[in-house]
Design a protein around this nucleic acid. Sequence first.
DNA 1: TTGTAAGCGTTATCAG
DNA 2: CTGATAACGCTTACAA
Lengths: 342, 342
Amino acid sequence: MVTIKDIAKRAGVSRGTVDRVLNNRPGVNPETEAKVRALIEEMGYRPNMAGQILAVKKRRLHLAFLIFHGPEFVFHLDILHAARDKAAELREFGVTVDFYLVRQLDTPYLERLFREVEDNQPDGIAALPLRTTAFMSFIQRMNAKGVPTVFFNLDEDFAPHLAYVGCDYVQSGRVAAGLVSLCTEGRGQVGIAAADGPNSPSFAGRMGGFSQELSANHPGLSMVDGGMPALFHNGDFTEVVDLVEQNPDMKAIYIVNMGDYGVCQEIHRAARGRNLAVITHDLAPAQQELLKNGLISATIVQQPDIQGSLPLQLLYEYLAFGTLPAKSKFFTDLHICISQNV
Amino acid sequence: MVTIKDIAKRAGVSRGTVDRVLNNRPGVNPETEAKVRALIEEMGYRPNMAGQILAVKKRRLHLAFLIFHGPEFVFHLDILHAARDKAAELREFGVTVDFYLVRQLDTPYLERLFREVEDNQPDGIAALPLRTTAFMSFIQRMNAKGVPTVFFNLDEDFAPHLAYVGCDYVQSGRVAAGLVSLCTEGRGQVGIAAADGPNSPSFAGRMGGFSQELSANHPGLSMVDGGMPALFHNGDFTEVVDLVEQNPDMKAIYIVNMGDYGVCQEIHRAARGRNLAVITHDLAPAQQELLKNGLISATIVQQPDIQGSLPLQLLYEYLAFGTLPAKSKFFTDLHICISQNV
DNA sequence: TTGTAAGCGTTATCAG
DNA sequence: CTGATAACGCTTACAA
C-alpha cells in the first residue's frame, strides 16, 4: 500500500507538500508539483480512508436535512428514520446533522424555516425538493454561497444540485404494467385508482411509464376510462367502487398512490369474490398486512432507507474528501414484494 | 464523542489499562477494572472505527476464500466476482485474501488443496461448504486451531462456524409458489422441472417450501405428477417437452434449477402459443435475455454480491475488532425480477 | 499490575 | 514556496 509518506520520500519533499498537491492547494512550485503528480500516478497512490476520516474529523462538519412531513406521507417517515440512523453513524466522523421537518407549505412559514436553516450555516444540505418559490430561492441562495445540496425522493431540476437520490417514477410505472400483465396473462382491462392525481409529482411519471409499457409491449391490455384515475380521499371510495362494479371484466387495478389504505378492503368488497389483481407502490406497515391478507397482490418498493441515508453519505464524501458523486442520479431499485417475500 | 483517553483521564489510569479492559486482556486489578467498566458504561463509550482500522492494519490479516467452480455453476461466478471486489476493498485495511477454486471433488485432489490452504495459515476462512469428508475434516481441523469460518451459499451444519450467508432455500420455494399463484390467478396445474434434482442441495429446500406454500395457501393449485420434476441435462429436454405437451391445462412451470438455458426455448415451442408462465431462480446473463424475450415470466434472485462480500466482511470485523456477527444466519433478500426491473 | 511511546495515514498549523 | 509537528483514536510492544 503506497502512502503519502512513500511519495514524499521518493520525491524528496515533505508530506505537507504532497498533501498540498493532492488537494490542489496553492503554494507549490510547478516543477515539484509535476514531479509529485508523476509519482502519484506511477506508484498508484490511493488515499487511505481511515486516515482521512480521522484527520477530517476535526473539521466538525455540519449538515442539514429537510423533509416534508404531513400525516398522509407515511413513506417520508421511513426516509426520515433511515436518515436519523445515518446521522448517528456519521457522528463518529465528526459530523452533526440538523433535521428540519416542513409541516406546512405557506410562504411565510417556509421563509422563516429556510431562514433558520441558513442562519445555522450548514456545510451541506439534503432536501426533499418542494415546488414553491420560497424553496427555490432558498436553494439558489445556498448554491450561491457554495453550499452543496443533494435532492431526494423527487427529481426536480429547477436548481443545480450535487445529485439526486430516489425513484425513477417512469420506470416504476413500467414495472407496475409488467406486474399487471403477469397477473392477467396479458389480456383484459385494468383500472387506475389514486388518492392524489395531478397534485402528486410522482403520479405523472408513473402513469407515463405505465401507459407507455402497456401500449408498447402488452397489446392485450387496455385501461378503463382511457386511464382516467378513480380518485379517493378521506374515506370516500365511491369512484373506486363504481370503477369495480361497472367493469365486471376488469382483471386488475393499479393504485398509483395510496393515502388511505381502506381502499383495498372496499375494492374487494365491490369485487364480490371475483378475481381482481391489485398492484400498489411502497410498503407501509398497513400494506404489509394487506399483502398477507391477499388484498394486495404485489407492491413495488423504492428503498426508503437508501433515500434517507445516501444523500448524507454523498454530502459527507464530497465535503470531507472532495469526492464528487459517481453519478448525478442515483435511482433506487424497484423491488417487487408479494406476500411471501416481504 | 467519548474516547479511550477521556475514560483514562476520568478513571485516573492510562490508555493502556483502559484498552486492556476493553479487550478483556489479563493483567488488570479487579478494582480498577470495575471502575473503568463503570465509566465505559456511564460515559457511553463507543469505539471509533477509523482509529481501530488504522491501528489494526499493522496485524496484516490473512483470509482464505474457497469456492467450488465448475462450468455449470454460473451463479458461483457472480459470488466470486463480488468477493474479489471486496478483497480489493479490504486491502487498505491491511487484509489480504487468497482465493482457492475447487475444480474437482475427488478426495486426493481435495486433500491436497486443503493442505495447501492450511499451510498458508489463514487467520479466517470463507467457504462454500462441500458435502465431502475431506472438507468436513478440514473445517474441523481449522476450528480446532481456532481459525474462524464463515459459510456461504449452502447452509450446512456439520461443523460449527461463525455464520452463514446465503439463501433461505425453503422461503425461496415459497416465493416461487406465490409467483405461480399470481400468474395463474391461483387456479390450475403447475409443472416442475429441474436440471439437477436429488444431487442439488438446494433442490430439496425449494421444493419443500414450494409444496408447503401451495398446500397451505393456494388450494386451487396442484402439481403435475405430484411434484416429480421433469429432469433435463446436456441438451436432452424430452422429459420437459413431454410434461408440457401431455398437460394442456398446465398453466405454469417452475424450473427449480437451471443448468441449460435452452430449456425455456423448448418449453415455449412445446406450448405452441398457449399461455404458460415460467418461474425460475437466479439471473445469469442468459436469463436476463430470456426475461426480456418473455420466455421467463419472473425469476427470484438471491444477491450473489452479498454472498461474496459479507463473509469476508464478517471475518474481518471478528478478527480485527472481536465483533461477533449480529446473527448466525444472514439470509439474502429474495428479490423478484421481471422484464421491467432487471 | 500499570504507564509510556511509537505508529497506522491523513490533514492543519506554524515556522522558516 | 516548503518542512516540521501535532493532532485524530486506537493497539501493541516494552519499560517500570
